[in-house]
Design a protein around this nucleic acid. Structure first.
Lengths: 159, 159
DNA sequence: TGTAGAAAGTTGTTGCCGCAAGCATCCCAG
DNA sequence: CTGGGATGCTTGCGGCAACAACTTTCTACA
């Protein structure tokens, strides 16, 4: 009867709830460490990149932030000493954001708790088979909605 | 070797990418209709509630927005004539947000395209069995990370 | 070589949201 | 029935991010 009770709406709502709810739980650990989710995302992307560095626009491409957003995130992180700007030798327009040693340390201190959080609120709730199937499905969708998530990576099997 | 290459990080990143990527695609339809995602979320929650209305704080509980956030969302929607505040007869502190006829119309006009979007970017990518399994897994996680998502509903099997 | 257009990054502006404070109302213990 | 604490909502304030405009540098084409 009610046209607003479509199972697709429910499915989409469920996905959104899980994502935001999970992010809210994980965010507690971040803010306890004085970082925002975006900060962490940025730092971890740098940590997983060759030489712990990435050009500003590649960072933007990976994080669904605009380039101006990245400018400000890196501003903040640089002010805290976790990241440093470094000019690109082959293109004077471009800058790298490079993880500093302090940035690595901060991440290293944070990651164990973060992994435990992921276990608690996500992976440990599923059997290994369930988890594998779930990730497979996520990859299927990801490949469609985010075809260029590997900016700045030459073809790394990140997932 | 690199401690930042844990499969759990990858799993979590994948989930986040899918969620934000999907939201970005679906958001195009919303903004074409002059609404934000939050606006749509709010309207659809009202549409799926008895009498097309919900108390402000219940709305907040359902949407992971703070109560002050809800105040402002309803401000905007009311300014556009899609929603109307209505005092609660049994508690003079409380207000209902009620969907107006125009609000219903706007939603009715928007939902078909939205459903098609969900198909395009999500459900049609999976087989029915895959989708069912996926939703089951999402429910498992949802029940843990968001135990009170049914505020204002007396025990409706919303999903 | 010179020039037009594209691209990388930054900055001004605007709007959104959470937090804390405030006001009105409700509830309950005494 | 009365006073204090809890609850529902709104508002002031601060921070964050997108958009657009701008500067500098690169690239391609004549």
């Amino acid at each position: 009867m009610d046209p607003f009770d479509d199972p697709r709406l429910t499915a989409m709502g469920l996905l959104a709830e899980v994502s935001t709810g999970l992010a809210a739980e994980l965010g507690k650990t971040f803010s306890a460490a004085g970082l925002s989710e975006v900060d962490f995302e940025t730092l971890i992307r740098l940590a997983r990149s060759p030489q712990h560095r990435l050009r500003m626009s590649d960072l933007a491409g990976q994080t669904s932030l605009s380039t101006s957003g990245i400018t400000r995130v890196v501003d903040r992180l640089e002010r805290e000493g976790l990241v440093q700007r470094s000019p690109c030798s082959t293109d004077r327009r471009a800058s790298y954001a490079v993880l500093t040693e302090e940035g690595v340390n901060r991440l290293t201190a944070l990651v164990p708790q973060h992994l435990e959080d992921i276990d608690t609120w996500f992976t440990s709730l599923l059997t290994p088979e369930q988890l594998a199937t779930f990730l497979e499905t996520l990859r299927t969708i990801r490949d469609v909605v985010r075809p260029c998530a590997t900016a700045g990576v030459e073809r790394a099997p990140t997932s």
